[in-house]
Design a protein around this nucleic acid. Sequence first.
DNA 1: TACGAAATGGAATATTTATTCTATAAATCC
DNA 2: GGATTTATAGAATAAATATTCCATTTCGTA
Lengths: 277, 277
Amino acid sequence: MTAPQTSALVPQTVTEVLERLDAGADILPKRLKQCALFTRRHLHLIPVSTVSEMARASGVAPSAYMRFCQALGFSGYSEMQGLFKAQVTDFRPDYQDRLGNLRFQADVGTGQLLAEFAEAGHKSLLSLANSVTNEGLDRIARGMAQARVIHLIGLRRAYAVVSSMAYLLDKLEVPSSLHYASGMLNASGTIFEGDVVFAASFAPFSPETIRLARESSDRGIKVYGLTDSDNCPLSGFATEMLIAREDEVAGFRSLTASITLTTTLAVAIKAMQSGVD
Amino acid sequence: MTAPQTSALVPQTVTEVLERLDAGADILPKRLKQCALFTRRHLHLIPVSTVSEMARASGVAPSAYMRFCQALGFSGYSEMQGLFKAQVTDFRPDYQDRLGNLRFQADVGTGQLLAEFAEAGHKSLLSLANSVTNEGLDRIARGMAQARVIHLIGLRRAYAVVSSMAYLLDKLEVPSSLHYASGMLNASGTIFEGDVVFAASFAPFSPETIRLARESSDRGIKVYGLTDSDNCPLSGFATEMLIAREDEVAGFRSLTASITLTTTLAVAIKAMQSGVD
DNA sequence: TACGAAATGGAATATTTATTCTATAAATCC
DNA sequence: GGATTTATAGAATAAATATTCCATTTCGTA
């Protein structure tokens, strides 16, 4: 075994790069330390950037960044970039052969599954624009912006949707209240005139959600609904409905379209309350 | 109002590219259709591939792929690649800037806002394929599939993510436990050997999440992490990390990539427990 | 402060990669 | 079925990018 060189061997994994980056933070000279610092926090830029870009972003000359790569053990930038590009390239080597049968079964790997869900997400987002009209969304945002308090209701699959909305509305300082399952039986008592209800319910529809929304509606409270189906019970009495269909993979659906829609809605509500628009 | 030309203009968004790709599938000549087909399913490869690579993967000559880019409305491959690289390169503004940004661009309508969030969703899904490797996801699914109980931890923005995962795992009959904020101080007592922890934490990172995950890790429990940043504290001790970056609109982010990833993960875990794969 | 060693930035060079051109092959129309 | 347009693949060229070299500066040490 020869002298304990700091580098010598070419890093083979991202983990190894990280280790050398952290180790080098102390011993590297000024400019190279700058490179290490920036690179450590922007690893994701490596595959899509040129040396010059990484150098400029790190605040050094291209040749300095070059020496930085070599100090890490690579022959140059290309070799380092190759390691990071491989992360992406290895992801799906032979997709085209399997087009057609996307069944979630034995021969389908995990990466394939992710590719399928991503694809389903793209489709869901594209169809979102078709089912949601500009004016409808605008009316809903306007209606909800005038509420004293926005009551959010959603169970099961819809719970994540309304809870993300609750988080965002809270951050935006829009008064809202997230109704949990346990408190729903008598939640009616906390909903007053001037409030609005935003209820999300996907097929098969939770009776509790429907009931609470209907009770509110009966008392003259405006109810806005979000669903994934044309025959949602909410549409029988809701002031206005939103539809977000999710493409499915092997019978499973993500929440891409729904959460994109509710996120938009929350931001639009805040925008209107701020007097703009 | 003039007729909406199919091409002519340079696509400015991923959404537009997707639309033209889907439209062109019918009208394009043979080789260019091959390009469209492959590219549609491998959008994430564009930023890290050369024309030759994309051409070879599509089964055509480089010059054919070149014409394909031009048929889409780009001047060439570089221009198309630039659009996809930009998504990674784009700089994310700070938390404090959000309301300011919102007011600044509030003259855009609600429908425009939805289009922007949809576009951000497309980008996030593309970036997901860049940061998650086939093998990494596979290892994680395998590791979590062997757990006695999966403990889900996530606060604030990450809460919706873990709660949707909890719902799905429950439906799939995979033993899991969702940890809420209030119970987290002594939650350590409910996590035993043979369990695994799945912790989600986005910048700025919740100390509670990190602490509970670290405590578990110190006790020999396997911890898997989900974050949106290269420098998440979890990566210091987690067995394995997942990164899901979300593109943002006016400083606001949806949860498209994160939930797509966790949905995939849940289904993959179940698949492994069922003995397939 | 003066010396040597190490580090730096910009310019020169080599390599890779995008793009265009052209001859040949299909497809389409009359 | 021949003529004309359109598509294709490979070779030639142009552009971008990585890499090296070297004169100059900076740093550490005596």
